[in-house]
C-alpha cells in the first residue's frame, strides 16, 4: 500500500497552479488536505503523474467576510471552519456539521475545497453548500467563473470542475437573523460516512431548501420536499409526513452498509429528525 511514483510541484501562486493544470501531459492531481487523495494513492486507485500541492498559496486559506457573502478559500481546513467566529456567526450550519466529519486528526488536515471537489455522495459539505444555495468559484487560465451549487455536483466523484480548473473559493450567503437550519445524520459509528443525512435551511421568507447526502449518487436537493415545506413557519406532523412521502422521489443508491430500501427509510427518518431539531 505504498503510493505509486509521481512528481511533486508546490506552486506559490494561483497562476502557478493553473499553468501546471493546463499541461494535460502532466496528468496533474491537486493535493489539498490529502485526506481522501492519499488513501486512494496508497490503494493505487489514484495514479497521478504529477501532484500539485496547493498549500503554498496563502490566499486559498482565507475566510473573508464581504458585505454580501462569506468567501472560504479552498484550502481552509475543517478545523479552521470549526474554530472560526465568522463561520459560527454567518454559516452556523457549517459549525453544526463539522463535528460529524471524521475525526480530529482528519479535520486538522481536510479542506472544504477538497470535500466539495471530490463530491463523495456520503460527505456532508456538498449538502451544506446545496442547502445554503452557495456558489463555487472555479479558476482556470481562461478566467474565473462562479458555478451555483445546484449545478456543481454531477455524480459520484464528478463535478462541474474540469481537470484544468481549480476550485478557489466557496461562496456562501450570510445567514440572516431569522434564518433557521437543521441537520441530522445517521452513521453506524461516530465520524463514519453517513448512512443517510440531510441539511435544511429555512429562509426568512419561509423558503426551505433540503439537501440529502449518503442516500444517492451525489448530494442532492429534492424540489418536491422543498415545495411541501416552504411557506410553513413550523412543521406539523402532517407536513412532515407529506415531506417524507415526497422523499420517495429520490433515486436511492445503496452502499456497503445499506441497500436502497434502507436508504429510503432512513432518508425519511433523518428528514423528520432534522425538521424536529430545526433552529
Amino acid at each position: 500500500m505504498k503510493a505509486p511514483d509521481f512528481s511533486y510541484e508546490k506552486p506559490n501562486s494561483i497562476p502557478g497552479i493553473l499553468s501546471l493544470l493546463e499541461k494535460d501531459e502532466l496528468e496533474c492531481q491537486l493535493l489539498a488536505g490529502g485526506q481522501s487523495l492519499m488513501p486512494m494513492m496508497n490503494f493505487r486507485m489514484a495514479t497521478p503523474k504529477t501532484i500539485v500541492d496547493i498549500s503554498g498559496v496563502s490566499e486559498l486559506s482565507l475566510i473573508t467576510d464581504t458585505p454580501k457573502a462569506i468567501e472560504i478559500g479552498a484550502m481552509v481546513r475543517y478545523c479552521e471552519l470549526q474554530d472560526s467566529d465568522v463561520i459560527q456567526k454567518f454559516c452556523p450550519l457549517i459549525t453544526m456539521v463539522i463535528p460529524h466529519i471524521a475525526h480530529p486528526a482528519i479535520r486538522n488536515r481536510g479542506t472544504i475545497g477538497g470535500s466539495i471537489g471530490l463530491s463523495d455522495p456520503a460527505a456532508e459539505l456538498p449538502a451544506v453548500l446545496l442547502a445554503l444555495d452557495g456558489k463555487v468559484e472555479v479558476s482556470s487560465n481562461k478566467g474565473i467563473r462562479e458555478e451555483p451549487a445546484n449545478k456543481f455536483f454531477k455524480g459520484i466523484y464528478e463535478t462541474a470542475c474540469s481537470s484544468n480548473e481549480l476550485i478557489t473559493k466557496i461562496i456562501l450567503p450570510k445567514a440572516l437573523p431569522k434564518q433557521k437550519f437543521g441537520f441530522y445524520e445517521i452513521s453506524r459509528r461516530h465520524g463514519d460516512y453517513a448512512m443517510a443525512g440531510v441539511c435544511i435551511a429555512q429562509d426568512q421568507d419561509l423558503t426551505v431548501r433540503v439537501a440529502f447526502f449518503g442516500v444517492a449518487e451525489k448530494a442532492l436537493r429534492i424540489a418536491s420536499i422543498e415545495k411541501v415545506l416552504s411557506g410553513n413557519s413550523d412543521f406539523s406532523q402532517s407536513i412532515i409526513e407529506n415531506a417524507q412521502n415526497a422523499a420517495e422521489d429520490i433515486q436511492f443508491e445503496g452502499d456497503m452498509n445499506a441497500g436502497p430500501e434502507v436508504k429510503k427509510h432512513l432518508a425519511k427518518v433523518v428528514l423528520e429528525r432534522a425538521l424536529e431539531g430545526i433552529k
Partner: peptide, 13 residues
C-alpha cells in the same frame, strides 16, 4: 445485528 437487519426484523423495510 446491523441496522438493515434490525429494520428488516421490524418490518420497516
Amino acid at each position: 445485528m446491523t441496522p438493515e437487519r434490525v429494520l428488516r426484523a421490524l418490518g420497516k423495510i
